Simulated scan of single mutants.
Amino acid sequence: MRAGSFGQLTQDKENTTQVTFHYVEGNTETFTIPIPASEFQEEVLQLLNQPWLTFHLVDQTVFICTARLIKVEIKPAIPELQGQGIFSNSMRVSTMQRAAAGRLPMNT
């Protein structure tokens, strides 16, 4: 790594958004796009209403059929999204946490 490259990586990370698509068939694909999450959040809901999304990569172009998606993950988080059907301050519960909760005695 050349001198000063860590700063460039940090800056690049701040100016990119990682999007993971989960398809109905069980496959996943992740793309990094050169847009800060703050800008991406302004368009994300409109983008998901489009029938197709297009990603131009260095060696190919990929079309995503939004009708075949069951989940989309975006990193970093975009908590600025507000409105109906959007739940702030949510937490993911792992399988181990669910299993442990089922084994703990309940106080009545």
Rank of each mutant, 00 (worst) to 15 (best):
L48A: 07
Q11F: 01
E14H: 12
M106E: 12
T17H: 02
E43Q: 15
I64E: 05
E73A: 10
T28D: 10
A3Y: 04
F21H: 14
V58G: 00
M106I: 14
T66D: 03
E25D: 15
D12L: 11
H56G: 01
N27C: 01
Q11H: 08
V93H: 08
S88A: 15
S90G: 11
L9F: 07
D12R: 14
P34Q: 09
P36R: 07
Q50K: 15
F87I: 15
A100Y: 08
F40S: 07
N49H: 12
M96P: 00
L45A: 07
T20A: 03
P34F: 04
E73F: 02
F31H: 12
N15T: 10
E80V: 11
G4T: 02
A37Q: 10
S38Q: 12
L9V: 09
G4C: 02
H56F: 01
L69G: 07
P105Y: 01
F31Y: 15
E43L: 11
G83H: 03
A100W: 07
T20R: 10
V72Y: 05
T66L: 05
A3D: 05
I33R: 01
E39F: 04
K75I: 01
L53W: 01
Q97H: 07
Q11M: 02
F63D: 12
I74H: 04
Q8P: 00
E14G: 14
R103S: 13
T54D: 02
Q41R: 14
L47Q: 11
W52N: 07
T30I: 00
T17C: 11
N15S: 13
R68I: 00
N27T: 06
N89D: 15
K71H: 08
I70D: 11
S88R: 10
G4P: 01
E43M: 13
I35F: 09
A99V: 13
L48V: 05
E25G: 12
R2T: 06
I74P: 01
Q97G: 03
N89Y: 10
T16C: 10
P79I: 04
G102M: 10
N15Q: 15
E25A: 15
S94L: 08
P36M: 04
F31R: 10
Q46D: 15
G4K: 03
D12G: 00
C65V: 06
